[in-house]
Simulated scan of single mutants.
Amino acid sequence: MLMRKIFTHYHNLNKVGLWLSILCTVHCLAMPFLLTSLPYLSKNAISEQSEILLIGVSAGLAIFLLRKDYKNHHNSTPLRLLLVALIFNILGIFFVPHAYEMFFNVTGGLLMASAYGLNWYWHKRACHSTGHQH
C-alpha cells in the first residue's frame, strides 16, 4: 500500500533526486579541501566509493523518474541532458586523468541537477494542464 502510494504520487522523489545531484556536486567540490585539511583520511577510502554511490543512486533515481515523467509531458530534453550528465560522470570516474576528474564530475553533477530541475518544470506544466495536484 505504501509503495503504491509512493509510486503513484512520486513528486517528492523528484526533489530527492535533485538534492542527490546537488549533494554529489558539493561532494566533488569539497573533496579537495577535505583531503588537504584532513591528510590522515585516504582519498581512495572516501572519494571514489562515495562518488560511485552518489552518482549511482542519483542516476538510477533520475532514470526512473525522468522516464516516468517523459510518458506524461513528452519532452525528451531532460532525458538527453541526463545522458550527457551520465557521460561526464562516467568519464570523470573511470577514464579521464586525475587532474580533470573534478571538472568532469562537477559538470556531470550540475547537468544532472539541471535535468532534474528541467524535468520538474515540465512535470509541473503537464500536471497543471491536466488539473493534477502536486
Results as ranks from 00 to 15, higher is better:
residue 65 L to H: 06
residue 62 A to M: 04
residue 40 Y to G: 10
residue 13 L to G: 02
residue 7 F to G: 04
residue 134 H to R: 08
residue 82 L to E: 08
residue 10 Y to I: 00
residue 107 T to I: 09
residue 73 H to D: 08
residue 109 G to H: 03
residue 43 K to W: 11
residue 43 K to M: 15
residue 63 I to N: 04
residue 86 L to E: 03
residue 36 T to A: 14
residue 44 N to S: 06
residue 59 A to H: 00
residue 46 I to T: 05
residue 103 F to V: 15
residue 76 S to F: 13
residue 82 L to A: 12
residue 126 A to P: 03
residue 129 S to A: 15
residue 61 L to W: 05
residue 90 I to R: 02
residue 24 C to M: 12
residue 117 G to V: 05
residue 79 L to M: 14
residue 64 F to C: 02
residue 105 N to E: 14
residue 116 Y to S: 06
residue 14 N to G: 13
residue 96 V to W: 01
residue 101 E to A: 09
residue 21 S to T: 06
residue 112 M to G: 08
residue 53 L to N: 07
residue 61 L to G: 04
residue 94 F to N: 00
residue 7 F to K: 07
residue 113 A to W: 01
residue 71 K to L: 15
residue 10 Y to L: 00
residue 96 V to T: 09
residue 83 L to K: 00
residue 114 S to G: 15
residue 50 S to N: 14
residue 86 L to R: 00
residue 76 S to G: 14
residue 127 C to K: 15
residue 106 V to L: 01
residue 123 H to Q: 12
residue 100 Y to C: 08
residue 9 H to G: 01
residue 35 L to F: 09
residue 71 K to C: 12
residue 62 A to H: 10
residue 109 G to R: 02
residue 78 P to V: 07
residue 54 L to C: 06
residue 110 L to E: 03
residue 18 L to D: 02
residue 13 L to I: 12
residue 134 H to S: 12
residue 114 S to K: 10
residue 37 S to W: 07
residue 7 F to D: 06
residue 10 Y to S: 05
residue 28 C to E: 11
residue 38 L to K: 08
residue 2 L to I: 12
residue 1 M to E: 12
residue 34 L to F: 09
residue 62 A to T: 07
residue 11 H to G: 10
residue 74 H to P: 01
residue 63 I to Q: 05
residue 10 Y to T: 01
residue 124 K to I: 07
residue 113 A to I: 02
residue 92 G to A: 03
residue 58 S to Q: 09
residue 35 L to V: 03
residue 131 G to S: 10
residue 78 P to A: 07
residue 97 P to N: 01
residue 5 K to F: 05
residue 32 P to V: 10
residue 128 H to T: 13
residue 63 I to R: 05
residue 75 N to T: 12
residue 95 F to H: 00
residue 3 M to L: 12
residue 53 L to P: 02
residue 12 N to Y: 14
residue 7 F to Q: 07
residue 113 A to Q: 01
residue 23 L to Y: 07
residue 45 A to R: 09
residue 72 N to R: 14
residue 76 S to D: 14
residue 10 Y to E: 01
residue 92 G to F: 02
residue 1 M to P: 13
residue 22 I to V: 14
residue 40 Y to N: 12
residue 88 F to Y: 04
residue 38 L to G: 03
residue 29 L to C: 06
residue 36 T to I: 09
residue 30 A to Q: 10
residue 50 S to H: 13
residue 126 A to N: 11
residue 133 Q to H: 15
residue 59 A to Y: 01
residue 96 V to N: 04
residue 13 L to S: 06
residue 71 K to F: 12
residue 87 I to G: 04
residue 131 G to E: 07
